[in-house]
C-alpha cells in the first residue's frame, strides 16, 4: 500500500495545488486581510511546506513552529472561523484537482490536527 503522499502524486501534486490554494485564500474576503503586506514568494514557500505536511509527505513542521508563526495573527483576531475558511479552500482546491474524496478526507484530517497549535490553544 503506497503512502497518502504517493497516492496524491508527491511533490508535483504539491506544486500543482499551491497556486490554486493560495489564490483561493488571497481572494477569500473572510481571511485575505491576514495576508496583507506579506511577501508572496516567502508565503508560497510556507504554503508548500504546509501542503506537503497535509499531504502526508516529508516535513519538519512542529506544533511549536505553528504556534510561533501564527501568534501575531491570533493577536489580530485569528479564530476558528478563519481556520475553517482556510480548510474549506484546501478542500475545494483538492476537489478542483480531481482528488478522490477518501484522500481528501485524509488530507483534511491531517490539516485539522494543527487547529489547536495554529490558534494557540
Amino acid at each position: 500500500m503506497s503512502s497518502l503522499y504517493e497516492q496524491l502524486g508527491g511533490q508535483p501534486a504539491v506544486d500543482a495545488a499551491v497556486d490554486i490554494f493560495y489564490r483561493k485564500v488571497l481572494s477569500d474576503d473572510r481571511i485575505s486581510a491576514f495576508f496583507d503586506g506579506v511577501d508572496m514568494d516567502r508565503q508560497i514557500g510556507k504554503q508548500k511546506a504546509f501542503l506537503t505536511m497535509a499531504f502526508g509527505g516529508p516535513h519538519n513542521y512542529s506544533g511549536r513552529d505553528m504556534r510561533t508563526a501564527h501568534a501575531p495573527l491570533v493577536a489580530r483576531g485569528l479564530n476558528d472561523s478563519h481556520f475553517d475558511a482556510v480548510a474549506e479552500n484546501l478542500s475545494s482546491t483538492l476537489q478542483e484537482l480531481g482528488v478522490a474524496q477518501d484522500l481528501i478526507d485524509q488530507v483534511m484530517a491531517i490539516a485539522g490536527s494543527t487547529r489547536q497549535d495554529v490558534l494557540g490553544r
Binding site: Y22, L26, S27
Partner: peptide, 10 residues
C-alpha cells in the same frame, strides 16, 4: 499579487 490573482502562475 494582482497578476497572481488574475491567474499568472507564481
Amino acid at each position: 499579487k494582482k497578476f497572481f490573482l488574475a491567474g499568472m502562475a507564481s
